[in-house]
Amino acid sequence: MKLELLINQKIYALDVAPDEMLADTLRSKGFLSIRKGCDTSCCGLCTVWIDGKPVLSCTMLSFRVAGKAITTIEGIQPEAEKFARILAAEGSEQCGFCSPGFIMTVIAMKNELKNPTEQDIQHYLAGNLCRCTGYMGQMRAIKTYLRGEVQ
């Protein structure tokens, strides 16, 4: 199917199969930050934003997001780097494979929730698995990042 996708504020004219998932479309267009960690919608590695909200690109049919704003981490590099530096200071981007999806969710959370508690943060990020870090350092980094925002 021919359609136009708005990815990171640029319009892409594409030909996608009706059963093509957004994750595959994005990777094929060179957005290689999109990673897949599962086949069952469980890991959150593939998180992108659709109209600013975090969504699993592995479970979202590409044709459905025509006309919506798609954002990958490539599209928000300055903010992503800002948080990534805090994450790296904690060593909590261990293998880094889960990090782009995790960072997309963290920044979406920051945009969506005001002064989240630790429990709110855990709940918001429940869909982001990480096998390396044990999550504690990620939480420390998030708190530092959010504190920076309050200041």
Binding site: S33, I73, A88, A89, E93, G96
Partner: peptide, 15 residues
């Protein structure tokens, strides 16, 4: 506690 030399690159989705 030096940050990893590849940390920011891998975390921000570089190929």
């Amino acid at each position: 506690s030096v940050s990893k030399i590849d940390g920011v690159a891998i975390a921000t989705g570089k190929p």
